[in-house]
Design a protein around this nucleic acid. Structure first.
Lengths: 209, 209
DNA sequence: TCGCACACGTGAAAC
DNA sequence: TGTTTCACGTGTGCG
């Protein structure tokens, strides 16, 4: 069912080459024939037939070139069959389509995962204020780990005059995560705004990026 | 250069249908011919020629079916030309390949961007053990917020018999972040392995995904 | 009328 | 050996 593909390819290309050679030869012959046609009695019909022949030859040549080009863009071609080339191309296209679907789904999931996951610490404002229960909030913020970063963070929270229940500072991969449990009367958004302004007051060194 | 594609399609399919019809007809005729061959004097040569004819017909039929299938998997086919079908298939394949390259580059960039940030909490093992100072570690892990997730997390850490200095559990957008300050004599990697195995002992419910 | 696209039958070449 | 694949010339139908 599957003879030697290499020889098949060579065979085919040889045939193609032969065909082209013959085509040129025939085209030349064609011109001669047309030359004869003008002087021969039944020149019209012969000329028409010859035109049809050369047109058909060019059409076959174009189709072969197309098929050759199709084989070129499809990887892992084993059999050089005309039908097999098209078959492999179909399989390859379906494979690409399926892969594209999967990859796009993955990219979608990845992006949505960022927005629904823990990316609060990666966004432009890596500050999250969550209401745990009545008057109790959890503040999480991250920033790059620099010199005096922790000190300045503590200064910020001290300056806010908040009732801090407990606070933790964790460093992971050159970043600082500070988690503070706070008891406050104010609104969640108001609290968040206050923290943001306090951090902005220290302008650049605390910029998350 | 581009006549009406619809009519072209109808033309071709009509021709194909005609061909099949004629094929069946000829196949029938063929059988009759074979029947005659057995009684005719030059039956051998005629039979061979007929075999070749029917084989060639089947080959053309297969090739047409392949081409038809190729046209089916390629969207936005305008011209129903044989050559045009292959040409459009080539363009489509190249388009898919280019798109695949771009998407894979994007996905790579997205993943690399995550790996430099805080993605420790988003990877397959969202467990981070950081050495703060001598014998003091900070363990951070995240998982999806489900029923009894916090309880099971606490059970895990209790089962490890660790000296817990302080522990916090924060929930952000349907995820749970647990940060534990631990005092331990063991190695950082050893501690991480122990926690991982303890979590794995609870098998699925704590799986981050 | 001519051009174009196709299917057909046939001989040859490769396996 | 026969089977398979190919290119070729030709006839046909449609625009």
């Amino acid at each position: 069912m599957d003879p030697n593909g290499e020889e098949y390819q060579n065979l085919w290309e040889t045939k193609l080459f032969f065909q082209n050679e013959e085509l040129d030869c025939w085209t030349l012959d064609e011109a001669i024939s047309g030359y004869y046609d003008s002087s021969s009695p039944d020149g019209a019909a012969s000329s028409a037939a010859s035109k049809n022949i050369v047109s058909e030859r060019n059409r076959r040549k174009r189709l072969n070139e197309r098929l050759f080009a199709l084989r070129a863009v499809v990887p892992n071609i084993s059999k050089m069959d005309r039908a097999s080339i098209i078959k492999d191309a179909i399989n390859y296209i379906q494979e690409l389509q399926e892969q594209e679907r999967g990859i796009q789904a993955e990219i979608l999931e990845l992006e949505s995962g960022r927005s629904t996951g823990f990316d609060v610490f990666e966004q432009d404002l890596p500050l999250s204020v969550t209401s745990m229960r009545e008057k109790t909030f959890v503040v999480s913020l991250t920033c790059r780990k620099r010199t005096d970063t922790m000190v300045k963070l503590c200064e910020v929270f001290e300056s806010l005059r908040l009732k801090i229940i407990t606070a933790n500072v964790t460093t992971v991969s050159e970043r600082v995560l500070k988690t503070v449990f706070i008891e406050a009367d104010e609104d969640k958004d108001h609290l968040k705004t206050r923290i943001e302004t306090a951090i902005a007051a220290l302008n650049d060194p605390l910029s998350p990026m």
